[in-house]
Amino acid sequence: MPIPVIDFSKLNGEERAKTMAEIANGCEEWGFFQLVNHGIPVELLERVKKVTSECYKFEREEEFFKNSTPVKLLKELVDKKSEEKLENIDWEDVFLLADDNEWPPKTPGFKETMMEYRAELKKLSEKLMEIMDENLGIPKGYIKKAFNGGEGDQAFFGTKVSHYPPCSHPEMVNGLRAHTDAGGVILLFQDDEVGGLEVLKDGKWTDVQPIPNAICINTGDQIEVLSNGKYKSAWHRVQAMPNGTRRSIASFYNPSYDATIEPATHLVKKENKEFNQSSYPKFVFGDYMSVYTEQKFLAKEPRFQAVKAV
């Protein structure tokens, strides 16, 4: 069964109710869905493909194959003729973009293109949070306000630029190990030719099919908490592939480190009228990230319990 593909342009027409229901289903049943006709110009997306691919090719590829830890460790296993698998490392070249960090210096147009792209993605993420507010029956702007720790613009919006180079022994290493995302709303612009991304649904791994110029959405742990478990953060992974370099650009709207996260009061009261209990603790997001950093690839439920005790 393919993951849901939703035509976002229909949100403003006669099919609004149907589209809202499709997004709700994507959040509730999958934690993953793809948006087409999302309003981000194709011309901008083409420039993003160009500058990120050029950045990897001219600034990062040689270093990855010459000096990276996964390449060295995989070579050691192959040389030993071992049948082991590298369990605690990923076949991934990755760096993080934020507005105030250093930008790759050698790729023409990289900073200008990615800043323009990030601005578009941030607007899309805020629109999606408003849709989640409406579908959950909580006040408009609730999730955004929670992530910002109140009014203002304190939430963290980051972009992770990843490439997964071809791997000569893909059976011996993960592209990216299975995990749920720590934060809020994740917007992924994935490669439209090289696959490898999979999401766990009903105990089975399902391919997230490449669709040209689609934006893939998934919900992180903080959306699960705010929705009191109605929306689940989805387990996903990337398989190492023998051919082609997979491009993956994930942007994420996360709470401020100082933001207090807990299930929305309206949902706690609605779902537990007699006991008024929530399924998740109240915590500061920065404390959660301290736990997540150590336990990213482990079961998520103990993370919620651990942060409860902080």
Rank of each mutant, 00 (worst) to 15 (best):
E198S: 09
H169S: 12
F95P: 03
P212M: 09
V307S: 00
L97P: 03
I6N: 10
E87W: 00
K111Q: 14
L226P: 01
R118D: 10
D7P: 13
L124Q: 06
Y117E: 05
E54G: 14
S53N: 15
S162R: 15
G13C: 07
W30S: 09
D93V: 05
F95V: 12
A299D: 07
W205N: 07
D192I: 06
A214T: 11
G220A: 08
Y164N: 13
M1A: 06
P165F: 03
D100T: 08
R16Y: 02
N243S: 14
E193G: 10
P70N: 14
V185Q: 12
A21P: 04
G13H: 06
S290Y: 03
G244R: 02
N67F: 00
E262T: 05
P104F: 07
R246D: 12
E102Y: 12
V268L: 13
K80W: 09
I143T: 04
K232I: 11
M289T: 07
I131Q: 07
L73N: 10
R118W: 01
I143W: 13
E102N: 12
Q239I: 03
P166H: 08
L35K: 04
K140M: 04
L226G: 00
Q305V: 06
T260D: 05
K270Q: 15
D133K: 07
F65K: 02
L136V: 08
Q209A: 10
A309S: 09
D221A: 02
E294T: 08
L136N: 01
R237S: 05
E15K: 08
V208Q: 02
V71T: 10
T69Q: 14
S168R: 02
G31N: 08
C27I: 11
W103G: 07
R118H: 08
K80V: 01
P2N: 04
F95I: 12
S278G: 15
A240F: 11
N213I: 07
D191I: 06
K145G: 14
N25I: 12
M129N: 13
S82C: 01
T19E: 13
E271C: 05
E120G: 10
M172F: 02
T219V: 12
Q154P: 00
I186D: 14
N148A: 02
H266K: 15
K111C: 08
T293L: 08
D221C: 08
Q190V: 00
G175W: 00
H236Y: 05
Y292K: 04
T69D: 14
G286Y: 00
Y288T: 01
G183N: 03
K122M: 14
I215Q: 13
T206E: 14
M172W: 05
I138T: 06
V199C: 15
V284R: 09
R237V: 04
